[in-house]
Amino acid sequence: MLIRPYGKEAILIEFDQLISPKIHQEVLKLYTFFKNQNIEGVRSLIPAYCSLTIVFDSSKVTIPQLKKQIESGKSELANLNRQRRIRIPLCYAPDFALDMEEVMQQTGLSASEIIALHTAQEYRVYMMGFVPGFAYLGKLDTALYCSRKKMPRQRVPSGAVAIAAFQTAVYPLSTPGGWQIIGNSPLPFLKGSIPPFSLFSIGDKVFFEAIDIEQYHQIKQLIKEDSFEWEQLYD
């Protein structure tokens, strides 16, 4: 673990620079420790794949004090909140799977093989970023690896589920984007003003469940009527 200043009022903690559940678990532990400690002067935490950045107010806390906290955070065992497992309904119908053809070409798989592989495994939220509520989920089955689109789309529809290299993600908002779109989820991933604001948070376990277009519209309707039972998404 390497700790260094990142400007005057932030420090960067770097773990082994690898994308792996084991390293990420270390990030998550330290992040959770700082989140729960509520240390005066700590203003923001930015956890990523294998790093944690702490933004602080230098008039309230110093780097040596933060280093001491990091030491005690490291030695505290299993202080991690139980990680949630979230089931995401996802419709792979051709209307939504805008790039299925391209993914089929790049991977040499059929659409049903792609869907089977994409729903077969559990993913981990490695990082939140790009736009609010956007979760980087990994790692994708290597058979599904494909490159980003040559030209990014100006507007990816919100709820689009996409893949690129070793990652998959849901676009919580309509934004520009260059990943390959293979479906759409009826869920709102960013809940306006209702905590916790984002359906995902770092460390969550996520898996996708294929639904048909009828179920897709049913869920949309329930959400619109505010009668969707959110608890059913969590194990």
Partner: peptide, 11 residues
């Protein structure tokens, strides 16, 4: 919005 960067939200 300093403090919400862990949700991917810009400052």
């Amino acid at each position: 919005r300093l403090g919400y960067q862990d949700l991917g939200i810009p400052q």
